[in-house]
Structure formats: C-alpha cells, structure tokens
Design a protein around this nucleic acid. Structure first.
Lengths: 216, 216
DNA sequence: GTGTACATGTAATCCGTTACATGATTCC
DNA sequence: GGAATCATGTAACGGATTACATGTACAC
C-alpha cells in the first residue's frame, strides 16, 4: 500500500528493441488466421469481429502497422502483378512473425487492464446539469444502439462457428455477446435509477424518503 | 478570421469555434462539483472516481486541459500569494464555463459509443497460439484484479453517497459497480468456455457435463 | 454515366503518455 | 537527513484520426 499514485500505466517493457504496439499484434493476429490479405480486407474483418472486444483501427492505421510489421520482418508483401486487374498489395505473415506472435500470445504477464470509456455515463455523472428528459432519451438511444450491436456480434459469432479452426475467436465473440447483453441490463438499471431519482425529487415533501436518500 | 473551422469531432459545430475534447469537459465537470481546486487535486479525484466509468487522464494532460479551459474563458486561476506556504495554482469554473458545460451536458445528440479495449480478450482470441494454462492464469489474474477494482468502486460509491448533492455521481458509480460485477461474471463464463474447449480437445469424442476439467 | 465498393497511400494534426526538471512541506 | 507527498510544469514522442489525393471495377 505505497506509491502508485500519479502514474496510471503499467510497467513499460523495453529491452527488446522494437515491439509493435498492441494494435500491431492485433493486425498480425488477423494475418495469422488467413493467408495473403490486403489492408482493405483486414479492415473489413476488424470491423466485423475484432472491434467488438478490442477495437478497429482506421484504415490508414492498418496500412501503417502493416508497413511496420514488414519492416520488422514479421510480414511480407507483394504487389499484384500485371495479370491481376487491380493494383493491390497482399501481406502474408512470415515464420518469424508467427514465432513472435506466438511468444507474445503465450506471455504470462499482465496483458493490461481493459480500457472502458463510456461517454454516456460521463453525461449521467453530470446529470445535475441536464434536463431529466435529455438523460432518459440518451440512455434509450444507447439501448437501441446496443441492441443493434448485439445482433451484429451474434451474427459474427454464428459465422465464426462454421469454421472449425476458429474456436478461440468464437470464445472471444461469445464473451462479447454476453458483454453486450450485460451492457443492456446495465443501461436498464441506470434508467431505473434515474427515474427513481427524478421521482424522489418531484415529491420531496410527501411520503418519499427525506433528502434524496436513494435506496436500492 | 477562422469562421468555418472544422472542429475536432464528427459534426461541424458552428458558433463556438473551439470546443474542448471530451476530456476537457470531464475536467470542467470535476471543477463544477467543487470550488477552487489544483490540478493535483483534480487528478486524485479522477483516480478515485472518474476513472471507473470514463478515464483518468495523466496529470500533465490535466494541466494542459486546465490551461485550455482557461484560454477559452471557462475557468480562471490564481496563484497562491506569498502568504500561502506552497506555490499552487487554483482553478475555478467561470460563469461562461458553467453555461458551456450545461449546454454540453444537455445536448441531445449521441454522446458517442462506449470504447472498450480488452487486451485479455484479444489474447483469448489468439488462444490457439498460447498454452491453455497461460490463458487460464491470465483470466484468473484478471478476475483478481477486477475484484480489487470492485472494492474500490464500492468504496467510492459509499463515500459519494454521504454527499447530498452527489446523486448523479452516485448513479454513475452504481453503474460502474454493476459493470464490474458483470465483468467478473463474463470472465468466469469465459473460463468455463476455455475449459470446455480444452476438455473437448483432449477427448475428441465425448462432450461431458459442465463439470469443468475432465481428466482421463 | 453515375454511384458504390475496392484499394492504397500521404499530410496535418491532435490526444495523450512518459520522462525529465524543480522545488516545498511533512513526518520519521 | 531522508522519504513520501504535494505541486507544477516542459519536452519528446507515439499512436491514431481525419482529410485529402488518386485511381479501378462493376452494377444499375
């Protein structure tokens, strides 16, 4: 119970010269499942799966990571020849890349705490500045969006289940599906809290508990 | 001269030229609860509360945001005079700042989707590259950490409940508490999935009851 | 013949972190 | 005297986004 005050990040790993950032490993991971792919394809795949539990980098970022991976020798690329219709660059993971990724994936030290930034809850936190209706509407919008996302995750999981080697992606997507379900419940509960508070504030004089002591 | 600047977020907001980023609003929000505060104090408060549902910026970032807020006229600061022991700069929200924050807090357009980056699930997604034990240990570590965080959120909520005007922060922290509970359940479920997969792989024909590890 | 998807990439810029520099105060 | 905490700030840099530039292929 000492120290650890102001700094909010875990230990930095140096020593090994140039380790890719997490995003780099994620992109290399994408490459490790499927063979030769273009940056564009990777982006689409990230959008339809990776983003649910991690994040989907901007396309320009994917291109940048691919270049870095290639510079590190973890991937190779080739331009489509004249025979192919479109000018594309297809990347493949190398043996060194697979080894590095495996070593990374098998590390036993802390992968890092999840990062959760919830703009809606931030707004609720400042709820005293907003109209109650605004807040309610915002939460309801969030619920709607989450329902939509939930469908997408489920579809992604269902698609992944058809591929025999994708058992781990299926687990990750299953996690994500439950996570979205939880998110819905969380939002409903918050809505109830908000309503309870609004009700308590409206009837502060009669039979409600004194001074907004909200009971759960 | 710059009338039609492209602002920093999706929409082009006319009128006010420079809107702070979300973090700026969060810092201004911190300021809106309590009076004159130093950057250092704000950081500690963010660490003990804001970080659970949004994020705790680095101290240098807080100082930077405070300067920006002051440049925008949303906050004022004064240096401690010679009478005070320590050289400090205390910030106060201005009337303009309170108006701007209120307008922001009461906006009805989408506050943005929550950002969730889960390095642990990313690792599970690449589980085929790791030893089963590594993965299990990682998930268990995560559960331990989450339990610790849960205690902290609960404490934060309990502390906040003692302040009458903090009803909305209490709701935000209550949300966060449930969120941590859900995170725990999610991790347990993933552990079970992982065990099931490992068992299935060991004995390729037999799907056993959800007892956990089945040795042969 | 126009719109959409495919496809790659550069430049500017911002957000945010870490490392560093500095110094006062408090408590042992 | 030394450690921890309080307190403020700068510099370097990296990660990531958006906007822009460019062009092909295909469908309606």
């Amino acid at each position: 119970m000492t120290s650890c005050q102001i700094s909010n990040k875990q230990e930095i790993r140096q020593g090994d010269a140039a380790r890719p950032p997490l995003t780099g490993w994620a992109v290399l991971g994408l490459l490790s499942f499927r063979g030769e792919r273009t940056g564009y394809e990777l982006k689409k795949w990230a959008d339809s799966s990776l983003r649910f539990f991690y994040w989907s980098p901007a396309i320009s970022q994917i291109y940048a990571e691919l270049r870095r991976l290639e510079a590190l020798g973890y991937a190779t690329s080739r331009r489509s020849g004249a025979e192919e219709p479109r000018a594309t660059r297809r990347y493949t993971i190398t043996e060194a890349g697979r080894r590095a990724l495996t070593a990374w994936a098998d590390e036993s030290d802390d992968p890092g705490a999840p990062v959760l930034k919830h703009p809606l809850v931030l707004r609720v936190w400042l709820g005293h500045l907003a109209a109650p209706d605004t807040l309610r509407a915002l939460v309801e919008q969030h619920i709607e969006r989450t329902r939509g996302e939930l469908k997408e995750v489920r579809d992604a999981r269902l698609r992944a289940e058809r591929v025999a080697e994708w058992e781990f992606p299926v687990i990750a997507l299953g996690w994500s599906e439950r996570q979205h379900l939880a998110e819905l419940e969380l939002a409903e509960a918050m809505l109830a809290d908000l309503d309870r508070l609004a009700a308590a504030r409206r009837g502060t004089r009669d039979d409600s508990p004194p001074d907004g002591a909200v009971r759960r």
